[in-house]
Design a binder for these strands. Sequence first.
DNA 1: TATATTCTGGATACACGATATCCATAAAGA
DNA 2: TCTTTATGGATATCGTGTATCCAGAATATA
Lengths: 142, 142
Amino acid sequence: MQVTKTLDYAVRSLTYIGHKPIVKHSMREISEHQHIPLNYLAKIMRRLVKKGIVRSMVGPDGGYTLRKAPGDISLRDIYEAIEGEIRIVECMEGNGICRLHETCPQLPVWDRVQLSMVKILEETTLEQMLAERGIRGFIKVN
Amino acid sequence: MQVTKTLDYAVRSLTYIGHKPIVKHSMREISEHQHIPLNYLAKIMRRLVKKGIVRSMVGPDGGYTLRKAPGDISLRDIYEAIEGEIRIVECMEGNGICRLHETCPQLPVWDRVQLSMVKILEETTLEQMLAERGIRGFIKVN
DNA sequence: TATATTCTGGATACACGATATCCATAAAGA
DNA sequence: TCTTTATGGATATCGTGTATCCAGAATATA
């Protein structure tokens, strides 16, 4: 029940780009400023490109820019680009049937947790995150 | 960002015991009815015992009963007994300082997600889970 | 006392996915 | 042509959730 480092990398990259959304930012630049392993970042960026969150340009002076306005990119978009469909318990995939053959007492709770989480992620845009100031402290790298 | 199988096992065991809170239930019985590997269940039960959620009796006709009323056991209690302190992002542990030396844009969001989750887990007691009927389907085992 | 049953605790093995690295290739600007 | 940068796939590493095994202690019952 933890946010993966990969998702953290993705959000950090996007907020970094988001500070100057027009300018192109190369993988190398992002990698160095955000302390993300270059080759691993490559994999992350590809997913963000594929999901239409980021635009990429190849060649010298190439790099990445946001494909949409920061206000139009929700944290849910980012989450799903990296992790796929949000599903905090396996059985929520629908096709699973319980061998126990009894109604599940805990599913409704996890459902509620997931719904509230999705709601928050959906309401939060990149723009808001850029505006928000970290109050409680700093992200730990590594 | 997923509920671990271990936590699922723990909740299933407790709801199973909770159906007849007075009666002693042996590990073997729980294991068979809930399809949980016996030896692994042993580890789980020890944690629940240590955290005072469950009482254990050794010897023939031994087993487990709830130590508190189902209404006094929250899902948060169970979660923390199994996983330890709830913390959906690493940096929330407090002693971590970010090498980036900049305010973290995403921490406030995860903080909100965690708070809402803790609230739901706290409000939900074993008693409520026992009363609730699974609406969406069944838990998939394995 | 003897025996069977059950929990306890530690050591260890396994599996899988998150994390990371490498490289050959394509695109594009100078 | 040369350099820079992204692409895509293959592969390696590593942590941890998951699972297994076993010797020992407790205790009820005969």
